[in-house]
Amino acid sequence: MTAFDPAPPTVRAAGDPSAAEGMVFHIMRFATHDGPGIRTTVFLKGCPLACLWCHNPEHRRDLPAVVWDGRRCVGCGACVASCPTGACIAAAGKIRLDPSRCRRCGRCADACPAEALERTERAVRLETLLETLERDLPFYEESGGGVTFSGGEPLAQPAFLLAALEGLGRRGIHRAVDTSGYADPGLLAAAARRTDLFLYDLKGIDPVKHRRATGVDNGLILENLARLSAAGAELVVRMPLVPGINDGHEDLAAAGAFLARLPRRPPVDLLPYHRAAAGKYRRLGLEPPLSGTSPPAAEALEEAARLLSSFGLTVRIQGEAS
């Protein structure tokens, strides 16, 4: 790790008030691709990585609290009237938030009748979250499902995550954590004690390429993966396959060799790059990344799966034999 890397998060002290409230950008019920069975996935804000292909740009902390969709706006002014600090400004037929005055309370979005203003984050109290997650308990039970924490990087809100995992454990609900692995080893170990399954992202083995694609070094990520494997944690390794970035033969062969050397060989899910997030980027006022990149061809996916399988790994392609 170099001085330029953002520091991986550390466990905060017990009794940390952030255990009582977390920043969430989405809760998705009937999530069917984030672990076994029917699940609810909680998307937590914040991520120390900045992957070029990121499919969930809403995690970014530097986004305004609220984004405006001009096609929906009816110009009623309810947002401006609701703002306690005068941060919400109507000018030239547009609604704009003055970042210097915005306290990120989201009242303007709540006041908007037209859903033209959309919150990019929501502070959720732990009890409220647990109550929401418990709602689909019968569906989890019937399907062998549960709750998945994703993001962003869920470990970026460590106290809240641990408290939520703890609460779910008391309720007997299966817990999965979808992580980049870029986290303090102590924190990860603490999470592992409260987690039934890690969906562990592996974005590449080559450190230079990794840094170029994600903004961080992968040494910690690979070490953490090895530690979790050694500790006997349930793991599914998820490999995003982004053409031209991490899908080269040598990239995949290196990944296969690394995974095959782990104390317990984890199953691998290949996640083909897709462009479904482009609309989200535009809604957030961001330019969609990798606009020149196409999703991998079916043959390329199968080839990648074959290559990884040759290392004795069980490989699934998301959306197919998942």
């Binding site: 009937f30 069917t32 069975g37 029917i38 019968p138 569906f139 039970e141 019937e142 399907s143 062998g144 499902g145 959306g319 197919e320 034999a321 998942s322």
Partner: peptide
């Protein structure tokens, strides 16, 4: 249609139905 692509998705549909009936 994308929701029901894989075999595992099919099983999830079946479990969704079973849960509704349990309710």
């Amino acid at each position: 249609p994308e929701v029901l692509q894989g075999e595992a998705d099919l099983a999830k549909l079946a479990r969704l139905i079973r849960t509704y009936f349990r309710l």
